[in-house]
Design a protein around this nucleic acid. Sequence first.
RNA 1: GGGAGACUAGCUCAAUGGAUAGAGUCGCAGACUUCGAAUCUGUCGGUUGGGGGUUCGAAUCCCUCGUCUCUCACCA
Length: 572
Amino acid sequence: MVNYKELICDILAETLTDMSREEIMGMIEIPTDEKMGDYAFPCFKLAKVLRKAPPLIAKDVAEQIKDNEIFEKVENVNAYVNMYISRANFVDGLVREVNEAGDNFGHSTIGEGKKVIVEFSSPNIAKPFHIGHIRSTVIGNSLYKIYDCLGYDTVRINHLGDYGTQFGKMISAYRRWGNREDVEREPIKTLLSYYTKFHEEAEKHPELEQEARDIFKRLEDGEPEEMELWQWFRDESLKEFTKVYKMLDIEFDSYAGESFYSDKMPRILDELNEKGLLEESRGAQIVDLEKYGMTPALVTKSDGSTLYITRDIAAAVYRKEHYDFYKNIYVVASQQNLHFQQWFKIVELLGYEWAKDCVHVPFGMVSLKDGTMSTRKGRVVFLEDVLNKAVDKTREIIEEKGVATENIDETAKQVGIGAVVFNELSNNRIKDYVFDWEKVLNFEGETGPYVQYTHARACSVLRKAGEEAVSKAEKLENFDPQVLTSDSAYELAKLIYKLPDVIVEAAGKYEPSVVTRHIVDIAQAFNRFYQHERILVEDEKELLSKLALVIAAKTAIKNGLALLGMHAPEKM
RNA sequence: GGGAGACUAGCUCAAUGGAUAGAGUCGCAGACUUCGAAUCUGUCGGUUGGGGGUUCGAAUCCCUCGUCUCUCACCA
């Protein structure tokens, strides 16, 4: 497929000899209104060099390039050169490209041979998977899909929160008030109740906190009794998490959590020591980062046990040596901005040049109407409940509509869970938001079900057209792009054309919502096309040409949804 | 108090320094005997938190003030 922007750049470069290709490329833009053309070139900046009024320059430029065959029309409006691409050629190229690429449309090889690690989800063991955890899980999974489709070699790591003082608390609580049968019957809920009780008691008896720290120290030292309990809690918790991951259709390449690095930390402490980065302060060991405008980083506690930051450094060093990553991405809440800045700086100070390849991808908080979510206070919305509710509602709608589907359960799952996932990926990551049942369960407008519905609608048209016609359309038999030059067909084609660039942009910004919004645009354009033009017409040339565009749209939507971790059912 | 981020239509959100700031939702008015109405069409809706500045041009860059969120030593 022709890269129109580059082509236009070449054409402009012939007339604008004073400017570099890069400069021209940076100035070519897509007008806000399609009535003003497909591409535009503002001439304000040329005024000084050419010593001429911008509108006059625009007029000259328009005059000089207007005869090029890729344009249907070139005109100047004030200081703008507005370029209208020849629609038939454009649509022809686009449809051929998409239909040939099929499921690979949007994919590329720009990442070939480069390894990208995405660390995401990373729930804390023995705590329920709540609506706050969905962000890292879903954003991370989508980033993995995006990098994967760009040809990068990807590794998904679930950095389980399976270590730390919290386990001291848990073990202490279990010994005081727990029993084995309850845990086995309902692990997470039971363990959580111990954890909650521990915090209640600790308020009255602060010495419990110290006891928890002591127990964690014993765990870190490998005392068998604590190790055994810890392992048991971990196994039970993982079983529960796996249930949720199955629902979301998410997998990991590694579950190496914090505990995995427990034996890799002494080395880091040694290195820090050798480089003279360690300082003792109030019995603890710190790295002073004042020079870099940050507060000191606590590396070991006064009892010698390690902290989160130490484990993250050890993990990064391990990952570099084990995977030799090109990029090491952490999808972790923005609450931890300082934490990441601190340890990225420490890794740099240790002399590791790859510190620059570590990326923190932060995201905003989820809160509830009555305040911040708090596991300790029991103020939570469980992710499993949200997913189940969405699936139930979807099933009701499907049954109500009576659209025949072979497998209602599976479709309800794909659409219901897809709705939650899509909702999660539709805004910029950094925004905080308040969880709202109504919003998650709304299936109209810019939602996942809307996009999936559009896909199903396209599939429905293709079914009605019949296998023979579809097969001909796929082979582009009797294909005539002139049929597809109406505004609605052309707008649809333009948006499909843009998808590959959008995917690259999403990867560069670590921002799946760019893809989400774009596939909404494609779906809207398809629905408009569908509304304005009859697809199943008598004339074979017209029919097959339109079917070819429908196939392209369907492919683009399906591939786009896949990047969000969503399915595209053919009936719903 | 220091640091970071957010602030755009009633609500939820878009907008590589460019043209008349766009969608969805809500409200109102329409379109199913026709390819799926989880759809489409129209309409209402704005001092882009306030104030300065830079620029031919600012929601976007700089300064300042305000509101909210997160964060700042033994949790993760």
